[in-house]
Write a protein that binds this DNA or RNA. Structure first.
Length: 567
RNA sequence: GGGCGUGUGGCCUAGUCAGGAUAUGGCACUUGCCUCCUAAGCAAGUGGUCGUGGGUUCGAAUCCCACCACGCCCGCCA
C-alpha cells in the first residue's frame, strides 16, 4: 500500500537526474530538484551547472529531457529548467486507489516513535476565554490534530496556573466581596466579576493588597488550606472554560496544576539547583541569573527566580513544569502569545543550564485586537469566545434558512451549528500565527470564498452525489479529463502537506490546502458529470468523488471542523 | 533607548525557513452561467513600484546592511 502517491515519482526523478549528471558531468555534479515547481510537479534549474560545464542552461535541460527513456515521468526543457511531471494518468489512478484503501489513515507517514507533549491554551483560571486567548486554543488544537493525523505520538496538555497572583486575587475576592448581581450561572463568566473588583480594589486599598500578598506567600509555601481553597475556585472557573473549549471542539488530554509543583517540592528543588549554579547571584535576598548582555550591565536582563522573601516566581515554576514534562516526553511544544517571549528566553536559558540539550519548541502567535484597539477586561472592551460562537451559529442559521426550505428547524439548527463553528475556527487558523489580527465580525464569520463553509459545502456536495448514486463498486479506475487529473494531483499532495505542517508547525497551510482541494472539486463538479456519465467512466468518477470526500473530511478534521453530509 | 515580530492590488492573504520561470487565493467591483449530480458554486475581467534605499547573485517578495511604519516585550507580575 502506497501511502504517499507522489513518493515514487520524486524518487524516480532524483535517481534519473543524479545518474545522468554523474555520467555526463562527473560524479560531483549536482542539481537541486524543486518540489513543487512553478510550472511542473518538479523542476531542475540548470543555471549553476551551466557555469561549470560551458553549456547553456537550456542545452543542459534539453539533454536531460531527451535522454529520459522511462515511462513514469514526463520531461521537457523550458527557459533553462528541466521540468518534470509525474505521469498524470497513472498518478491519478494510483492516488484514488491509495486513498480508498488507506481510509482515515491516508496521509499518515510518520512513525510516531518519540512522544510529543503540546502545551496549549493554559488560560489563567480567573475568567472566561476571549477571542485573543481562543487563538491559542485553536492553533494548539489544530497542531495536535495535524500531528496525530500525520502519525506522530502526541498528547495535549493544559497548564493550570492556580498558584499565581491572578487566581489569588480572584480567591480573595470570592472570600471578601459581595456576590455579583449579574445573574450569570456559567462559572467562568460569573466568577470573573470577583477578580475584576478585587484587582481594582487592590490598586487603591493597601490592606486588601497586603492580604492578597500574604495569601500569595502562603500559597507559594504550599499552605494546605490556601491551596485547597484556590484549587476549588480555580476548578470552578476551569469547568466554565472547559465547557467553552468543548463547544469549539477543543479537548485537552491532560490538565497539569501549577500548585502540584509546589506541593511535591519540585519548585523548591529547582530553586536549590539554580542557586548552586555559578551564574546565580543574590540581590538583597532575591536570587537571579543574568541573561544576555556580555560584559557589564549593558543589555543585561535579570531572570529573578526568587523574591526577597524567598517565594518563587512564575518562570521559576515554569522551569519546574518543563523539567516535569521532559520526564514524560521526548519533545515539547509550547503554544504561546508573543508577549511571553522574554519569559521564555529566561526559561530556555535556565533549562539549558540545568538540563543540558533539552529545550522545548515554541509556536508563538500575535494578538487579536479590536478595530477600536486593544482588548481590555477593565474597559469591558473584549469579545468573548462564547458570544462569537453564538453569533456565528445565529448568522449561519439565517444563511441555512435562506437556502433550504425542505428541512426541519432542528436540521437547520444542526447544520448552522456545524457551519458557524467551522467559520470561526477556520478564520482564526487560516492566517500565519505571527500575523496580528484585527477582529471583525464580517471576516470572522465569513461563509463564502476562503472559508470553512466553502470546504464543508464541497464535502456536502460529494456526499450528495454518492447518496444519489445507489449501489456501485469501483474495480480499476481511470482518468483522462483535465479537471479529473488536476483534482487527483491535489489529492496526491495531501501526505506532503501533512508532513510539512508537522515539520513547520504552520497550521494555516492545512486551511490553505483544504480550500484549494474544495476549489478543484467544485471545478470538476461543474465541468464533468458523474451520475450521468457513461458506464465505466461513471464508477471511476464515483471513486474519485468518494476519495475527495474522504480527503476533505480528513483535512477538516485536522482543522477541528466537522464535515456535514448536507448543507 | 534595547530586544523580538510584521509590512505583498481598495481590504484580507499565500509564497519568505531551504533564492529560480508570467507573484497565490479570497473579499469588494464589472460581465456571463441554475429546464443540468446542492449557485455557500462555476467561468471571464479590472486592479500590484512585494514598506523605502543600498548590497550579494546568472537570478531577490525570499539572503545581507541601513532606514521607515505598526504590534509585542523590556516588573522581585503572570
Amino acid at each position: 500500500m502506497n501511502m504517499d502517491p507522489m513518493e515514487r515519482y520524486v524518487a524516480e526523478a532524483r535517481e534519473y537526474i543524479n545518474a545522468r549528471l554523474a555520467s555526463d558531468y562527473g560524479k560531483d555534479a549536482r542539481l537541486e530538484l524543486e518540489i513543487p515547481a512553478a510550472r511542473a510537479d518538479f523542476a531542475c534549474p540548470c543555471f549553476i551547472l551551466a557555469r561549470k560545464s560551458g553549456k547553456t542552461p537550456q542545452q543542459i535541460a534539453d539533454g536531460l529531457a531527451a535522454g529520459y527513456a522511462g515511462s513514469g515521468l514526463k520531461m521537457w526543457a523550458e527557459n533553462g529548467y528541466l521540468n518534470i511531471n509525474a505521469d498524470p494518468v497513472s498518478l491519478a489512478a494510483e492516488t484514488v486507489t491509495a486513498i480508498r484503501t488507506s481510509g482515515d489513515d491516508y496521509g499518515k507517514t510518520a512513525e510516531g516513535r518519540e512522544k510529543i507533549i503540546v502545551e496549549h491554551t493554559s488560560i489563567n483560571p480567573n475568567g472566561p476565554i476571549h477571542i485573543g486567548r481562543a487563538r491559542n486554543a485553536l492553533i494548539g488544537d489544530t497542531l495536535v490534530r495535524c500531528f496525530r493525523h500525520a502519525g506522530l505520538n502526541v498528547e495535549s496538555e493544559y497548564y493550570v496556573d492556580d498558584a499565581g497572583k491572578q487566581v489569588t486575587m480572584l480567591v480573595w475576592g470570592v472570600q471578601h466581596l459581595e456576590a455579583p448581581t449579574t445573574g450569570i450561572i456559567k462559572p467562568d463568566r460569573k466568577l470573573v466579576d470577583y477578580y475584576i473588583r478585587a484587582s481594582e480594589l487592590a490598586g487603591k486599598d493597601e490592606k486588601c493588597a497586603a492580604e492578597i500578598q500574604e495569601m500569595q506567600r502562603r500559597l507559594d509555601q504550599g499552605d494546605p488550606e490556601i491551596v485547597r481553597s484556590v484549587r476549588m475556585i480555580a476548578d470552578d472557573v476551569l469547568e466554565g472554560i472547559k465547557e467553552s473549549l468543548s463547544n469549539i471542539n477543543v479537548r485537552l488530554d491532560r490538565y497539569s496544576y501549577e500548585s502540584d509543583l509546589i506541593l511535591n517540592g519540585k519548585v523548591a528543588g529547582v530553586i536549590d539547583k539554580l542557586k548552586k549554579l555559578p551564574e546565580a547571584k543574590e540581590d538583597g535576598g532575591a536570587w537571579y541569573i543574568p541573561i544576555g548582555g556580555k560584559d557589564g550591565e549593558d543589555g543585561e536582563d535579570r531572570f529573578y527566580f526568587t523574591r526577597t522573601d524567598g517565594t518563587s516566581l512564575y518562570t521559576t515554576r515554569d522551569v519546574a513544569y518543563h523539567i516535569d514534562k521532559f520526564s514524560r516526553a521526548d519533545r515539547l511544544v509550547d503554544v504561546l502569545g508573543e508577549d511571553q517571549k522574554l519569559g521564555i528566553r529566561f526559561l530556555s536559558a535556565a533549562l539549558k543550564l540545568l538540563e543540558t540539550g533539552r529545550e522545548p519548541d515554541f509556536l508563538f502567535y500575535s494578538f487579536v485586537t479590536l478595530p477600536a484597539g486593544k482588548m481590555s477586561t477593565r474597559a469591558g472592551s473584549f469579545v468573548l469566545l462564547d458570544d462569537i460562537l453564538e453569533e456565528g451559529k445565529r448568522r449561519a442559521k439565517e444563511e441555512v434558512l435562506k437556502r433550504r426550505s425542505d428541512i426541519s428547524d432542528a436540521e437547520a439548527t444542526a447544520i448552522a451549528s456545524v457551519v458557524g463553528l467551522g467559520a470561526l475556527r477556520y478564520n482564526i487558523v487560516r492566517l500565519q500565527a505571527e500575523k496580528k489580527v484585527v477582529f471583525r465580525w464580517e471576516e470572522a464569520l465569513n461563509f463564502e470564498g476562503n472559508s470553512a463553509p466553502f470546504v464543508q459545502y464541497a464535502h456536502a456536495r460529494a456526499c450528495s452525489i454518492l447518496e444519489k448514486a445507489g449501489p456501485w463498486s469501483a474495480g480499476s479506475v481511470a482518468y483522462r479529463e483535465e479537471a479529473e487529473l488536476a483534482l487527483c494531483k491535489q489529492l496526491a499532495l495531501f501526505p506532503s502537506i501533512l508532513r510539512d505542517v508537522s515539520r513547520s508547525m504552520a497550521v494555516h497551510r492545512m486551511a490553505v490546502y483544504s480550500h484549494e482541494l474544495a476549489s478543484l472539486f467544485n471545478q470538476f463538479y461543474r465541468l464533468v458529470s458523474v451520475l450521468k456519465a457513461a458506464e465505466g467512466v461513471r464508477t471511476s468518477r464515483l471513486a474519485l468523488v468518494d476519495a475527495t470526500r474522504q480527503v476533505l473530511r480528513i483535512s477538516l478534521d485536522c482543522l477541528g471542523i466537522e464535515a456535514p453530509r448536507s448543507m
